[in-house]
Computed example of a mutant assay.
Amino acid sequence: MSQFRIAVIVGSLRKDSFNKKLAQALVRLMPAEFSAEFSRIDDLPLYNQDDDANQAEPVKRLKREIAAAQGVLFVTAEYNRSIPGVLKNALDHASRPYGQSAWAGKPAGVIGVSVGAIGTALAQQHLRNVLAYLDMPTLGQPEAFIHAKDGLFDADGNIGAGSRDFVQGWLNRYLDWVRKQNA
């Protein structure tokens, strides 16, 4: 039986997103004491402060999912050297209205994959800056900038043999971080 629920947020909407595949593979590597719920961000309206007093149902759903989780795993793409707009929109929505942030205190993990040699390094740095402001204790080390190359995923969508130990090691450190933050 799972003791810890992880909200998984993928910062890419693309149907065949490498980051979605990475998130799914990470969830399959989690031990039984963890469960994961993928939180949708594709149906959120654009953030408008005028709506804070009457948030849309998809925003309320996202906030409920974050509130019910013991940790949040961000698996983000990198667009134009930063985080995707859809991810920033989700961060803004669930942090509002002021003083009612669903993110505060939730232990975060940040990882991503890209076809570029530096992976999602700059997007992750930008995301870490936002998470610090949102009062999310974020795993600092190890960092994981995954390069999407042949063999990263096997035929079943699992992490391939050449990257499995590294990715599992990162995931183990993040899950230990969640345990520690929830002790």
Rank of each mutant, 00 (worst) to 15 (best):
G105L: 11
R40P: 02
T120E: 05
G116I: 02
V59A: 06
L46P: 09
P45Y: 10
S35K: 10
N89M: 07
D176M: 09
S95G: 14
Q141S: 05
F145E: 03
S17G: 04
L46G: 14
P31L: 03
H126N: 11
K15G: 03
I118A: 08
V10H: 01
G99C: 11
K21N: 12
V110P: 02
D16S: 09
I159T: 05
E37M: 07
A148H: 14
S2D: 01
R64M: 11
W103H: 06
G116S: 04
A121D: 03
Y98P: 06
A117C: 08
N54L: 14
G85H: 07
A104D: 05
M136R: 07
L73A: 00
G162Y: 15
A144D: 00
G109E: 03
G160S: 12
D52C: 13
W177I: 01
A148P: 10
V72M: 05
I146W: 07
A155Y: 12
H147L: 13
G157R: 08
V178R: 03
D176T: 08
R179F: 12
I6Y: 02
G160Y: 07
I111T: 06
P107K: 04
A56V: 10
A144S: 06
S163R: 15
G109P: 08
D16A: 14
Q70G: 13
A90C: 05
Q181A: 15
L26C: 03
R164T: 11
V178Q: 04
L127Q: 02
D50L: 13
V113E: 01
F34L: 06
I41N: 00
G11F: 01
D43K: 09
G140I: 07
I6M: 07
E65R: 11
P45S: 14
N129M: 15
L73E: 00
H126K: 09
Q24H: 08
E57I: 09
L131N: 03
I66H: 05
N19R: 10
R128I: 04
Q125L: 15
M1W: 05
M1S: 07
F74S: 02
A36Q: 03
I83G: 01
N48H: 14
G160C: 12
R96C: 14
F34I: 09
Q55E: 13
Y133H: 15
L134Q: 09
A108V: 08
V8T: 04
I9V: 11
V130Y: 11
K88R: 12
S35T: 09
S101W: 08
Q100M: 12
A102S: 11
D52H: 09
F145A: 13
E57C: 03
V8P: 02
N19Y: 07
L62T: 04
S2E: 03
D176E: 05
G85I: 05
S17K: 09
Q124S: 08
P84H: 10
D52G: 06
H93Q: 14
R28F: 12
G140S: 05
Q70D: 08
P31W: 04
A102E: 01
S82G: 08
D156H: 15
S114V: 03
E33L: 06
D165R: 00
G160N: 13
W170S: 00
Q181C: 14
Y174A: 00
A123T: 04
K106T: 01
I6A: 01
R96W: 08
R173N: 02
D92A: 11
